[in-house]
């Protein structure tokens, strides 16, 4: 009976192994990547999955083997050495230290390549989070934000040009907001009073991806889900022109100044 407990604990590494083996094939792995830099992040994920998975299975199997092999012996039987092998201790200290530190230092390159240097392109749009919607403000013909020819959308959806760098300014109008596009491997928090920049490039000519807004534990968070539509530059400009015309048609004329 005593050995059966060891088999019970074997359940954990078996499940771990299944996770490592099955995970990349589980519904095509991570959300479909349509971004320029997403492959680098995905590569990290798969690499870490294998490093952590193999380590996990190895350690759990070692535990299970000990449980199986050393259970039910006579209490008088002498036990093995108290302090173990110095070589073994040195090995299991140095090897994981080396691997873990290598990961910690090397991963910064991926981040730096993707996010450290803001591209020298004009701002495509300003996105402001509010409870419970996101306002998107596009610069008008003058290319500047917060001028009278700006175009503002408040329906939660966003249109962006594909196959070119997109630079967004993210702001918050009230609370801490989270702006996330999983298919572009973008996630950014923004606090009130601050502004953040995110940039990315959709490599597909046309794509419609989910935007997951807000912090999920907040009530009403799901009301802020949105759709980002990527389209070729010409279509994007046509869409902007059409929306600007709609907006101008509804614009209330400014009242005359009081004399």
């Amino acid at each position: 009976m005593k050995h059966y407990w060891a088999f019970l604990f074997l359940l954990v590494p078996i499940l771990g192994l299944l996770t490592v083996v099955l995970a990349p094939n589980f519904n095509d792995g991570l959300p479909p990547d349509v971004s320029e830099n997403g492959w680098a992040i995905d590569r990290w994920f798969i690499f870490l999955l294998y490093v952590a998975g193999i380590s996990f299975v190895f350690m759990e199997c070692a535990l299970c083997y000990s449980l199986w092999h050393y259970s039910g012996r006579s209490s008088r039987e002498p036990r093995k050495s108290r302090h173990g092998s110095r070589l073994l201790k040195a090995a299991w200290t140095i090897l994981p230290t080396f691997v873990f530190l290598l990961i910690a230092v090397y991963q910064v390159k991926t981040l730096a390549d993707a996010q450290a240097r803001r591209p020298d392109v004009p701002i495509t749009a300003e996105v402001t989070g509010r409870q419970f919607r996101w306002d998107v403000r596009y610069p008008g013909a003058d290319g500047l934000l917060h001028t009278p020819d700006d175009m503002v959308c408040v329906d939660g959806d966003i249109h962006l040009p594909s196959q070119q760098k997109v630079l967004l300014v993210i702001k918050s109008g009230d609370v801490l907001h989270r702006f996330s596009m999983p298919n572009l491997r973008i996630l950014q928090d923004v606090a009130p009073g601050t502004e953040q920049y995110v940039w990315f490039m959709c490599r597909e000519p046309r794509a419609a991806v989910d935007m997951m807004f807000g912090e999920p534990w907040l009530w009403g968070a799901s009301n802020r889900k949105g759709l980002a539509t990527f389209e070729p530059d010409e279509d994007f400009k046509n869409w902007l022109t059409r929306k600007a015309a709609e907006q101008n048609a509804h614009r209330v004329p400014e009242p005359p100044h009081a004399e």
């Binding site: 050393y70 039987e77 036990r79 873990f100």
Partner: peptide, 22 residues
């Protein structure tokens, strides 16, 4: 994370060559 892993190794070292009572 490394310290957690080393702690686990020490636990394996404890049960290795032992006389386990379940």
């Amino acid at each position: 994370a490394l310290l957690c892993v080393l702690t686990f190794f020490n636990w394996i070292g404890t049960v290795w060559g032992s006389n386990i009572q379940f």
